[in-house]
Design a protein around this nucleic acid. Structure first.
Lengths: 220, 220
DNA sequence: TCTCGTCTTTGATTCAGGTCAAAAGATTAT
DNA sequence: ATAATCTTTTGACCTGAATCAAAGACGAGA
């Protein structure tokens, strides 16, 4: 969240952010097609967002954790273009978008913050496109693990251990791979001593080896 | 561009939009890493945007034409995260971002417009992720052609004929395919009488057949 | 007009990842 | 505790797209 506001301004911001909503594991915060009314700041829990082609194929477009904001996909057409599903019990701040717009007219720092959040999402998706368009299975998984552990570390968690909140199938959907390929890649990393895997628990034993897989040239 | 402004407001908007820049074919409007200062509204010409992994693999993230706005990738980090290269001689409006922010504080309709543009880009990229993660070569090419021709048609051009501004290699990069695969898919469509291709000239003979390839289920 | 360089097509072959199948672990419900 | 269900792993095999290679086609410049 942005910084550098006066106490009075913070109070206004708090008012926007006061409404909470709990979402149980497996439930949708919003679904594709739902009316767009608000952005959501994740307070706790873990989400996936996904789009579905009209013949039913699902693509996970991202995994989001505490501190991240979701829902921007709804702004263009006043209804959501993807679904956001909780992968564990979660709580979000409901931030009505009209209030956000109103307030960011008065508070340039908030305005800039909103723009940055959306731009960050564009940049993130650029990165995923690069991954999906150019990388091989093991590179994708390495990139995924490194990204996840880095974000968790930024939240005070371990930079080497994590518990995946999503299934192999969901990881595969995000990475453009089948679940068997994800599983095989995990096993391969494990055999090579790069990681330790037990179901959804993952320990990164050799982060440099992962980085090397993710980006071979840098280390040659 | 947004509508519904008073003459006075239009004048202010015109002031933002008055600065022009010409970009010759093959030149970059901005490069990855460049300082971010402005968004660009394309007045004429055709661009590609692309990101590059640090080992040099390039991913085309989009093709942009007149009326579209590019540069939003630069907002988060105050420098551009991708490059925008003109595929034909082009002219853009340079819209300094500080001016956009300033004005959109006064003009809610402009503010909303800026938000929609960014949201539209997020949604577009969601669609590309679905394409890259789930579709086979011919589906990707069909989706690409249909999208392109639809956008051209919205600009008053034919809905069945088009001249590609980009090479097979660039199409391949965008679609996550090698250029040979793009070429083969073109040939296949051509053999099947779905399109007529002569180099970069493409005529869509059977749009429904293309739509069927793009989205099989709908027609079953 | 001819040549050079670039882009495109096509063919032959290879291979990464998909598909199908089955077993082994987890997790939940009874 | 046990059964039932879901998830994950692993194996065998297949296939769509990549790779390698060569020949055409086109456009720019001499």
């Amino acid at each position: 969240m942005p910084v550098g506001f006066s106490p009075e301004e913070m109070q206004r911001i708090d008012a926007v952010v006061e409404k909470r909503r709990r979402v149980r594991q497996g439930e949708a915060l919003y679904n594709n097609g739902d009316d767009f009314t608000a952005l959501y700041a994740i307070r706790s829990g873990f989400f996936k967002t996904c789009v579905t082609s009209n013949d039913g194929r699902e693509q996970v477009t991202g995994f989001q954790m505490a501190g991240e904001v979701i829902g921007m996909d709804g702004i263009v057409n006043d209804n959501h273009n993807c679904s956001a599903v909780a992968l564990e019990d979660a709580e979000v701040c409901v931030m009505p978008f009209t209030m956000i717009e109103e307030m960011s007219r008065d508070l340039p720092a908030l305005q800039r913050h909103v723009h940055k959040i959306m731009s960050r999402e564009i940049v993130r998706e650029n990165g995923v496109m690069l991954l999906l368009g150019n990388m091989r299975a093991e590179e994708r998984l390495a990139a995924f693990l490194l990204n996840l552990v880095q974000r968790l570390h930024a939240r005070g968690l371990s930079q080497s251990e994590l518990v995946l909140r999503m299934s192999r199938d969901e990881i595969g959907s995000y990475l453009g791979l089948k679940l068997e390929t994800v599983s095989r890649s995990f096993s391969k990393f494990s055999e090579e001593g790069i990681i330790e895997v037990r179901q959804r628990y993952v320990k990164i034993l050799a982060p440099d080896a992962l980085k090397k897989i993710f980006n071979p040239q840098t280390y040659v």
